[in-house]
Structure formats: structure tokens, C-alpha cells
Amino acid sequence: MRRAASAFVFSAILISAALSRAEPAADAQQAFDRAERAFQTMRFAEALAAYRDAVAADPSARFVPTARARAADLEAHAEGDFAPLTRLSAVRRDPSRSGDRSVIEALALDAATFPPGRVRGEAELVIADAWWHRLGEPRRAVAPLDAAIADETGDRLTRSLALGELAQLQRELGDLDAALAVVERYPDLAPATYREVRALVRRGHLRAAAIAVLAVLAVIAVASLAKAASRLGGIRELPRAVLPPLAVAFSLYLGGAAAVLVRLRGDGDPRPFVWLGLGVLAAFTVARAWRLGWGDGGPSARAARGVLCAAGVIAAAFLAVERTDASYLEGLGL
């Protein structure tokens, strides 16, 4: 009888201990659920308080990391007593509203009055995204992106994202100089974007130089072919005279064998090599026609011919790569 009474008392102690442990866990779960509901319905101040309560009630609960992260995020967006965040979330959470012109225009007006903080920059990003992608007016996205980048109270990640977006937008609009100007204003904000845009500008200059070299060679080729034809006594003699079999075989090998190698490798683009082979063949033709049309000339003339034709080969190679698969240029630092 005494043993049964002892067992009863011991069990009662265990149950009451378990109940006393379950109480904070239940409180924490209730607070977390309350916070989630408040968050979903955009009552952010209430949500922040409830997340804090949940963490305080049971720091070992499984949802505590989530609650902590949500609370930290809300604290970082608390400017203006959450009024700007509520205004932004109302648009951001509804895809139909973020594609509505009048809603976006109203948000832009409100964003201009937002206090300093993270929400202002994020609102500008939402506005820019709407103008660019949803409403099809990319030029109207420039101003909000500019504002998001210039806002030093905004989050650094948001600012660098805005910088990348603006550089991409200017490129799409065909204004590479504007893209360069914006990345040069903030070189440390998005270093990868800075390097990418500078490489694009450099490639633009090289492309212009390559086209100029090929244009000069084309003019020389036409004049030389005409002169050579008159010297040889007719246009029918030209192909055999300006295209020696060795040059044709070399060019075919240069482009064709390289293209086959790239295909065997399986992950490259063979087109630059094909174009390179054709470019070399064209340079051979120009050099040969030049010599046939105007004579061999002295050492300086031969040197000039060689340098210009070599420049033509380099120009053709650059354009072949740049127009087909510019990723090859990145490996060369271009």
C-alpha cells in the first residue's frame, strides 16, 4: 500500500514537471502563430512584438531561428512606424497591382515622401521593375533605379542590385556610355558589373578599330583586283592567280580542323574558328591581289602590305569571336 502511494506521488511529480515545461513551449508557439498571422496581414509592429515574445518564451523552440530572422528583418524596415513597409508590401504582394500603371505612379509619389531607410530603395526597385518589365516602358525605370543607387541610407545589396539593373537597362537601350558613366560613379558598389561594362566598352572600341581595318582592306582589295584583272588580261584569270591552292588548303585546315576539334571537345562554339579560316583566306586574297595589281614594290611596301594584312587577320579573328561567342574573349582579358 505504501509502495503504491509512493508511485502515485512520483508520477504526479513527473506529470506536473512535464506540464510546467510544456507551458512556455505552448506560449512560444502561440506567440509565433500570432506573429505569422500579423505578418501575413501586414500588421508589422504587432508581428515584431510577437516574434520577440516567441523567442523570449522558449529560446530552444525549433521556429526560433525563423522568428529571429523575421524580427531582425522587420527591425531593419521599421522606419516611419512601418507605414512605408505597409505601403510597399501592399503593392509587392499583389502581382496584379504591381502591373497597374496608376498603382505604380501612386507608389512613386509616396516613395518620394518615405523617410530615410531600406524601404525607400526597395520601393524604387519595385517601381523600376514595374516600368521596365511589366509596363514595357524601360526609360521610365531609369529615374527610380538612379534614386535607389544614390540613396545611401538604403541597404548595400539593394543599391548594388539597382546598379546592376541600371547598367543592364542602359545596355538594352543601346547607351553603353550611360552604363559606363553610372558604374564609374560607384565603382566599389558592384565591382563585377563595373568590370563587365568596362570590358564591353573596350570591346566596342576594338570592334570599331577592327571594322575600320577591314574596310581599308576591302577598298584596297577592290582596287587591287580591278588592277590585277586588267594586268592579267581578264577577270577569268583572277581566281587562279589570287587564290593559290596552298593558301586555300591552309585556311580550310585552320578553320575546319579547329572547328572539328572544338566539336570533339563538345562544349565550345566552332563558329569563331570557321570565320577565322575564312578571314585568313580573305587576307591571303587581298595580299595576293595587292601584289599582282601594284607590283611587289620595295621592302617598305612589302612590310606595309604584311602589317596591314596581319592586322586584317587579327581584326577578322576578333570579330569572329566577338560576334559569335564573346566568352572566349574573357579568357584573353578582353
Binding site: 596552298l246 588548303a249 585546315y253 580542323a257 576539334l261 571537345r265
Partner: peptide, 19 residues
């Protein structure tokens, strides 16, 4: 891959040698 690229370069060299 190295052997293939070296053979390709050898082919270019052969053209140069012939010329």
C-alpha cells in the same frame, strides 16, 4: 586534349614548312 591540340599545331607547322 593536349595531344589533339599539339597535332593541330603540327598541321599548321606543316603548312609553314611547305611554304
Amino acid at each position: 586534349w593536349r595531344a589533339q591540340v599539339a597535332l593541330y599545331a603540327g598541321g599548321l607547322g606543316a603548312f609553314g614548312g611547305y611554304a
